[in-house]
Each structure stands twice: as structure tokens, then as C-alpha cells.
């Protein structure tokens, strides 16, 4: 387990890589990658039990990035953990790359589940958690979903079932960055009061600042101790976090920065 200062440095490094990768690919999703960077960095460097040397280790904790388009941050973290060399990162989205535009478990070491069609990943995470229960294993299952993604009906089918099966080995982060492709979540299709919905579906719920590493660690700890219920951590985040001209900007959902913007972003992330 790394200390907080180290984790903050790691997150910054992940953000720099995200910017490099997406600029180099000249396509990809910076906004939603940066909003979940602190969460995914903390998961892999502090919370989860996993082994880069043995990605298929049976006892490992599992992770599903249900909002698959944010995979640049996922790939950067996996690479820093040692799942594959950093040199692969700049091949993001290129022909034949092990780093596809959306996570592909067949080609990327460390990716537990393929995603990209929103709303589907959470159900798979539930299935992994259920398998853990059947086999009486100690591993835990983590997932990150989007707030726009929460508009998919399948999210709520998963929600109902995970509580029904008492999947207390499942801990989900909702990356609540308030934006989706066409605008603000509250304008397109409001999901609020979202925490009450998860509560009503029988989940243990926790609200945190999704950019506070302390709060992320604490919430995951509470989730671990909670028995009989899955945990939903509603993480308040900022889309494009830490890059001033991307923060809160809908246009950086799925647009790559140009070289000049890349340089400015990297200066801000020094």
C-alpha cells in the first residue's frame, strides 16, 4: 500500500499519460478518463489485491470498467502496475495494438472484462461477485460506472440483482462528473437523486469527493466491512479534472487535444 503523497503523484502521472496517449492517437475520451483517474489509480495502487506478474491469478480482486470509453486511464494504470510496457501506451487505438479503443480482455493483459456498450459491464461485475460467493472465495469485485451510463435500464437490473444476491463482495464507484456526450446529465436525462435510488435498491451507499484519495480509501474500507449488501460509492467528480481547459467541458468528452493543448495540459500536470 502506497502512502497518500505517492498516490497523488501516481494519479498525476496517469493524467499525463492519458493526455499523451489520446493526443498521439488523435482520438479518444479525455474527459471521462481524467474524472476517474484518482479512483482507478487508488484502486490499483492501494485497494485491490492483484498481480501484474500473474494477471489470471485466481484469487485476485476483479475490476470492470463499465464506462469502457475511459480506458486510457485504465491502460495507463495497468502499465504503471507492470502489466505491459509503457511503450504500448502510445499505440492506443492504432491498428493491431493491444490497447483497443474500448477495453478488450482478449488482447490486453490485466483487463478482466471487455466493455464499450454502456450499461453492460456492471452486470458482468455482478456475475464475477456471484461466482466468488458460489466458490466461497475472498476476492472482491470493483467496477466504475458513469452517470450518463446510469440512464441505461440494465444498470438498474444489475442493481436489483446484486442486492438480491447480497453481493457484499461487490463495490461500485459512480463517476458522477455531471456530463455526457450531448450535454449535462441533468438536462439530457436527470438521474438525481441518484444516491437515494441506490439506497432504495438495497445497496449500502457512500458519497465522497471522487478526487480525494483519502475519501476513496476510506469508502472502500467501509465497503469491505459491510456485510450482506453491495456498496455504491457515489463519487463527486469533475470531468476533465486537472486540465483547466477540459474541466467541466462537454466538448472534451470525446475529442483529442491537439499538440499545443497537449503541451499546456502537461505544464498544468507538472
Amino acid at each position: 500500500m502506497e502512502d497518500i503523497i505517492n498516490l497523488k503523484e501516481r494519479a498525476k502521472e496517469v493524467r499525463r499519460l492519458v493526455i499523451n496517449m489520446i493526443t498521439e492517437a488523435n482520438s479518444g475520451h479525455p474527459g471521462g478518463s481524467l474524472s476517474m483517474t484518482d479512483i482507478i489509480t487508488t484502486l490499483y495502487f492501494s485497494i485491490m489485491n492483484h498481480s501484474a506478474a500473474n494477471p489470471a491469478w485466481e484469487e485476485r480482486d476483479r475490476f470492470v470498467l463499465s464506462k469502457g470509453h475511459a480506458c486510457p486511464a485504465y491502460y495507463a494504470v495497468l502499465s504503471l502496475c507492470g502489466y505491459f510496457p509503457a511503450s504500448e501506451l502510445l499505440k492506443l487505438r492504432k491498428l493491431g495494438s493491444i490497447l483497443q479503443g474500448h477495453p478488450d480482455s482478449k488482447v490486453t493483459p490485466g483487463v478482466d472484462f471487455s466493455t464499450g456498450s454502456l450499461g453492460q459491464g456492471l452486470s458482468a461485475a455482478c456475475g464475477m461477485a456471484l461466482a466468488g460467493k458460489i466458490d466461497k472465495k475472498d476476492y472482491r469485485v470493483y467496477a466504475i460506472i458513469g452517470d450518463g451510463e446510469s440512464q441505461e435500464g440494465q444498470i438498474w437490473e444489475a442493481a436489483m440483482s446484486a442486492a438480491h444476491f447480497k453481493l457484499d463482495n461487490l463495490c461500485v464507484f459512480l463517476d458522477c462528473n455531471k456530463l455526457q456526450i450531448d450535454g449535462k446529465v441533468e438536462d439530457i436525462m436527470n438521474i438525481e437523486p441518484v444516491i437515494d435510488k441506490w439506497k432504495a435498491f438495497g445497496w449500502n451507499t457512500i458519497q465522497i469527493d471522487g478526487h480525494s484519495i483519502e475519501e476513496i480509501i476510506e469508502a472502500a474500507g467501509i465497503a469491505h466491512k459491510t456485510k450482506g449488501k453491495p456498496t455504491m460509492i457515489v463519487a463527486d467528480t469533475i470531468k476533465g479534472k486537472c486540465v483547466s481547459f477540459m474541466e467541466g467541458k462537454v466538448c472534451f468528452h470525446g475529442t483529442a487535444p491537439n499538440r499545443e493543448q497537449e503541451q499546456q495540459a502537461l505544464r498544468e500536470l507538472e
Binding site: 454502456l118 450499461g119 450518463g148 451510463e149 440512464q151 441505461e152 435500464g153 455526457q180 456526450i181 450531448d182 446529465v185 439530457i188 436525462m189
Partner: peptide, 30 residues
């Protein structure tokens, strides 16, 4: 549309006829 109006170009219709355009969010089945 389901949160892809900017890419499918239905956004142009929404600007012209806001009262006849409905963005359902990311809920295609719905």
C-alpha cells in the same frame, strides 16, 4: 436520440424543432 445527437446530426433537427426532439439519454431500449 440516445445521447449521440451531436454525432448522428439529429441535433440539427433539435435546434430547429426543439419541441419535437427528445433525447432519451443513454437508454436505447427505452
Amino acid at each position: 436520440d440516445a445521447d449521440t445527437a451531436s454525432s448522428t446530426r439529429t441535433q440539427w433537427f433539435s435546434q430547429e424543432f426543439p419541441e419535437r426532439f427528445f433525447n432519451l439519454g443513454i437508454s436505447e431500449a427505452n
